[in-house]
Every structure is written in C-alpha cells, then in structure tokens.
C-alpha cells in the first residue's frame, strides 16, 4: 500500500499547475458548451426506422399487436428450437402462455439465481427492455422491469427481446434522458459482431449470435 500513497495529491497538484492559465475564479460551468445539435434527426416514423435499422444489423424483427404476443413468443421459440429458456423473475407469465418451452426464472431477490453454467446450458433468454433508439437500432436494457440481470442476456446464444412501442424514441439524446445511470446498462445494436478481420463485419462472436425482436404496437 505504501508506494501509491501520495499519488493522488501529486496528480492533482500537477493538474492544477498545468492549468495555471485558467482564471482562478472561473467556474466549470463558465466554459461554454454550445448545444447546436438535434434531439432527433426526423429520419422517418420511429417504429419503421427501428425495424429498418435492426434488420440492417441482421437482427430478426416481427411487429405484433399486444394480443398476438404470446403466440409470437411461442412461434419464435419453436422456430429457434428453444426448449428451455431463461427469463427474468418478473417476466409476465402471459408471454409464455402459448409456448411449450420450459421457462427458468432467474429471481435473485427470491434466492433463485441461475448459475453461469445453467445459463450456458439454456437455449435462449427472453426479456423486455428499457428504451429503444430508432435512428441507431439500439435496444437498451437497464436491469429494470422484465429485464433481469446482465448475465441473463449475455451467456445464452439466443436473445428474444420484447420491445413496446412506447419504449421507442427517435434519437440518442432522448434515450440518454430516459435512463438512470445508477442502473447497470447494456446497449445492444444487433447480434454480437466483429470487424476485426479485414474490416469485414461478421455477426456472432461472444455475445448472443442471434437477436430476435418482437415489436409490440
């Protein structure tokens, strides 16, 4: 512990010495920040745009009415061949009312926590989301309602995400405004991908290799 002692003071003193030209009385807020940028870019109707962007990332998207959701979930899981899925403890039972898949609930507050190896063994995860950004095709999970822990949507190879129309915003600024930074967040824009080999995009590395979205209108 002894070596780094005093480093804090040393670094801060060097920062202050380096900033000798900044007037003493200047408040951080006095340094001007122009905000001449748009909250939204008006690139089209939000839901259409979101679908277009998600498909561009090669995510699978289906638009459904609220009443159709249980059938859509069942159909998606069946098509995928997902017999066992992990879901957040608070996921509505109705989502799975039409599906024959085994549903494993991860509910840390009830001491029912799926281990990493259990998550690795399921066929997929089904969750909701906090916000979705149309312009960038981004789905944001913040561990809030119907979303569960971060590991839930990370370890399984298939993620089925339920996005509700009211959760969709046009642009990034609106999404940032809706989010509470205290909660851990995962921003997801399509399935896991890499461009590390000759800058050619390849979907599917370590995260879920298939992302499927049910957009509920």
């Amino acid at each position: 512990m002894s070596a780094p002692l005093g480093s804090r003071e040393r670094v801060l003193a060097k920062v202050r010495a380096a900033l000798a030209d900044v007037p003493r009385g200047e408040d951080p807020g006095d340094a001007p920040v122009p905000r001449d940028y748009a909250r939204t870019h008006r690139q089209g109707p939000a839901l259409d745009l979101l679908v277009d962007r998600l498909e561009d990332y090669r995510a699978q998207v289906r638009r459904v009415r609220g009443a159709e959701l249980p059938a859509a979930v069942a159909e998606a899981l069946e098509r995928r061949g997902a017999a066992r899925v992990a879901v957040p403890g608070d996921a509505p039972g109705e989502w799975f009312s039409r599906s024959g898949a085994e549903v494993l609930r991860d509910a840390p507050w009830e001491d029912r926590v799926l281990s990493v190896s259990e998550l690795d063994a399921v066929d997929g995860a089904v969750t909701g989301c906090a916000v979705a950004v149309a312009e960038t095709g981004t789905i944001i999970l913040d561990t809030g309602e119907h979303q569960g822990r971060r590991a839930l949507t990370l370890v399984p190879d298939y993620h089925l995400c339920v996005v509700r129309a009211r959760q969709v915003v046009d642009g990034v600024p609106e999404a940032v405004e809706r989010l509470d930074p205290v909660l851990p967040q995962t921003w997801i824009s399509g399935p896991s991908a890499t461009s590390d080999i000759e800058l050619e995009r390849v979907e599917g590395v370590h995260g879920p290799r298939t992302l499927e979205v049910l957009l509920v209108e």
Binding site: R53, Y57, P108, W109, V113, V133, E135, T136, G137, T138, T143, R149, R150, A151, P181, V182, L183, P184, Q185, T186, W187, I188, S189, G190, P191, S192, A193, G207
Partner: peptide
C-alpha cells in the same frame, strides 16, 4: 456504424449484478 453492437455502463458495484 450507427451504433456499435454492445456498450456497457456500470456505476460502482450493483448488488447481485456484475
């Protein structure tokens, strides 16, 4: 890209997550 596939945001330690 319009957005990179994944971003993670965390604040200190969250009990039961991460």
């Amino acid at each position: 890209e319009r957005m990179n596939p994944y971003s993670t945001v965390w604040t200190g330690v969250t009990p039961g997550d991460g």
